[in-house]
Amino acid sequence: MKILVCISKTPDTTAKIAFTDNNTKFDTNGVQWIINPYDEWYALVRAIELKEADASNSIHLISVGGSDAEPILRKALALGGDEAIRVNIDIDDSYTIATQIAEVAKSGGYDLILTGKETIDHNGSTLGGMVAELLNLPYISLATKLDMNGSIAHVTREIDGGQELDEVATPVVISAQKGMAEARIPNMRGIMAARTKPLSVVEPVACDALTSTVSFEMPPAKAGVKLVDAENVAELVRLLKEEAKVV
């Protein structure tokens, strides 16, 4: 079975969020870049587990971005990917990104295409669904569990107030979230091996961006916390009722 895992580069979860160029660009100064946690902890690690269970499975990684996405792909290779593909275009528009991934996937013969449920910077939750529609494949979103039985994927996904177990024949696109797998740390052997694993760069296909980011803004600052004495809980109830008007 061939697995394609979509990898996105995001700022570290503790990165300071600030903007430059008149609030039109994210300030990358001092930012440490990581693999988007949903792509890494859930999608990639589950793919690695499937490969550990059946060594005939292979894992390809794909990232759409500039050369600064390569350290992220190397880290994903160190965790356990077999080879990586970078599509050489740095763009925000998710339709363009999905189009590039679908283009590569068309000729790759993948049985499973895995993504994280969203990136922690754009919070789009759009990529998996777009790739699936572009390839005319089924898409299971927000999956918390994935097991294979031959060519049938058994996928548990979140629904309102509970969960649903789906059975779907490959090929299929799945977006992964918490529950799917546990985070791992690459070991020295993996890091060494990653240096020589293939990482190919392909040029993008033409695509009209459907969206563009105009500007960023920060939320209004909080006025500061109003502390209430622990012995005077009734005062908190009064504030919530009369001032905040939320209960």
Partner: peptide
């Protein structure tokens, strides 16, 4: 709505209609 089913549907409809999508 940017709900569970909205997250599954909107991206697919975006591709079908070649319509730009903003979520959230």
């Amino acid at each position: 709505s940017h709900s569970l089913s909205g997250k599954a549907l909107a991206p697919r409809v975006s591709v079908r209609l070649k319509a730009g999508l903003v979520t959230g």
